[in-house]
Write a protein that binds this DNA or RNA. Structure first.
Length: 301
DNA sequence: AGGTCTGCTCACCACAGCCT
DNA sequence: AGGCTGTGGTGAGCAGACCT
């Protein structure tokens, strides 16, 4: 579990949903940790009843009426379960191994398999993971007879069944370190600065300051004017960098084709055409994007 | 004075394996 | 299931060299 990335995502989702997002499903190993992070960003007590883990999702209907949910990670069934399935199918594959510098043979990382039926082993593993993720997402909006029963479920894992997600985003791409935050903070306190200005102020090398500024420039969060300073130095100016922490990246997949389905676009505050929405509308606003002719529902599906 | 490139160290993270 | 440990990979941070 990457605490900071989970925190960045949950903080943004809470900004948008407020009290509407207070449940999560993850692995048993990190369930308590995810609950703690959710507790922190929610600034309220998140009880044990508000989280569940893969394995118990088929027997609990607690989240049926929730309007939003968060899934993190996927379960790992282990080698033996996969090998048992292969044996039943009369197929042959073995856990892949690697050799250490000492000449020892160890299990290769990544739950990989070798052998004639390694592809099937990988498919079985993916099937187990994806089925649990799908089952977990299905804990929400369970009143099939109620047209108002719907929920937005954010699935933070790469173990999603093909075609299952309405919309896919690349997730948290970068979280600044303490030094990088200092550089950002320093830049926002002055109208503009060179790499040397910031490096001297923060106490790091100008090269590190330059790399940080380059990264921000690439994301259109900092404006760079080449050679505009003394001695031909590049001059940098904050251009929305104040909100770099928790930046939500551009969505990646194509619109859905069916008119009865709706997709969600998580908009960057600085590129959103509705960035000047009234107070009370979150900077990380989640907007329904219609793919048919009808107006979108109040919330995404 | 500036920017850029390279290579190094170190801390952190993900993962497998082991133990309780 | 949960906790702990060892290991390899990755990226941040930095120094120094080089060129403009």
């Amino acid at each position: 579990m990457n605490d900071e990335r989970v925190r960045a995502v949950l903080a943004r989702l809470r900004e948008h949903h407020g009290d509407g997002l207070e449940t999560a499903i993850t692995t048993a190993q990190v369930e308590r940790a995810v609950r703690t992070v959710l507790d922190d960003v929610a600034s309220e007590e998140i009880g044990e009843e508000n989280t569940m883990h893969y394995g118990e999702e088929k027997s609990r209907n607690d989240f049926a009426d929730e309007r939003a949910g968060y899934l993190y990670g996927c379960m790992d069934p282990g080698d033996e379960m996969i090998l048992d399935v292969l044996a039943v199918l009369d197929l042959d594959a073995v856990p892949a191994t690697a050799t250490t510098d000492d000449g020892d043979t160890v299990r290769e990382k990544g739950r990989t398999f070798d052998g004639e039926d390694a592809d099937t082993a990988r498919a079985v593993l993916a099937s187990v993971r994806e089925n649990h993720v799908a089952q977990a997402a299905g804990r929400y909006a369970r009143n099939a007879d109620d047209p108002d029963s719907r929920a937005t479920v954010y699935v933070h894992t790469d173990a999603v069944p093909a075609g299952y997600a309405d919309y896919q985003v690349s997730g948290v791409e970068w979280l600044p370190t303490d030094t990088q935050r200092e550089i950002i903070d320093e830049l926002t306190t002055r109208p503009n600065a060179t790499t040397r200005d910031l490096a001297d102020a923060v106490g790091c090398t100008k090269e590190h300051a330059r790399e940080t500024l380059q990264r921000l420039t690439d994301r259109d969060l900092v404006e760079r004017r080449e050679g505009a300073g003394e001695h031909g130095a590049d001059v940098y100016q904050a251009d929305g960098v104040e909100d770099v922490v928790g930046e939500v990246v551009e969505t990646t997949n194509d619109p859905l084709c069916n008119p009865n389905r709706w997709s969600l676009a998580i908009c960057d505050l600085h590129t959103s055409p509705n960035a000047d929405t009234p107070a009370g509308t979150s900077s990380s606003d989640v907007k329904g994007r219609a793919t048919g002719d009808d107006p979108p529902p109040d919330r995404g599906g």
